[in-house]
Amino acid sequence: MAHTEGRWTEAQPIVSLKDVRKSYGTVQVLNGISLDIMKGEVVCIIGPSGSGKSTLIRCINALADIQGGSIQVEGQEVHDAKLDKLALRKKIGMVFQQYNLFPHKTALQNVMMAPVKVLKENRVEVEKRARELIRKVRLEGKENSYPGELSGGQQQRVAIARSLAMRPDIMLFDEVTAALDPETVKEVLVTIKDLAAEGMTCILVTHEMGFAREVADHIYFTDKGVIVEHGPPETFFTNASDPRTRQFLSQVL
């Protein structure tokens, strides 16, 4: 579905990919990916390593460029030389596998930095919002801790709060629990579940099948740069038709 810029409404997909192609040198990573995500939807992308999942969501906020096809976010073409990257990144929050917090800033400062420096918002208001966000991710009392003093799960929740401080419309989660030990995985997943329940549009690359099944509205299975199969979790996990999907599921479930 092609949109005309500036005329996006909530009845249209908030994120729309059309035949997206990307290669690193001669290696084709994305081989014609098309998907539509509606506002408020929670979408999980699963698939074997190297199937292009992470690359796919990195393309959505222009951290990686594409060689073909089109990606639109709220009706705006992402891979356009004239794109206002700041406007795009205000709309899209991203959380990484390795948290990537700023190690020289406290948890509170990490959350406040982008709104103050990038959006030039009032420091006092930002601080109020940042403290609320830290409470929301259940880290009261850790405001003045440095990332190095926090556990992986706590750091990841600070990273989520840091993204939320920019008041995004869409959140991207790139294997955010892959580097965590099983006990702390849960605390991060609870935070994401809260967000999803509030109606945040979430796109997750994940290996947490149980979680995907529980929170996702739609699941995409990618392999070798294409979407092999997709559907709502009930049918996806029980009635997968593609043999590759079935084989993958039998290995991970």
Partner: peptide, 26 residues
């Protein structure tokens, strides 16, 4: 780490802002 810079980029920092607020202090 490049990943730290990428996080700054994803938050909307320009190259110069990233240099001043993240790269130099580290």
């Amino acid at each position: 780490p490049k990943s730290t810079l990428e996080a700054a980029e994803a938050l909307g920092f320009t190259r110069l802002q990233t240099y001043i607020y993240v790269v130099l202090p580290l």
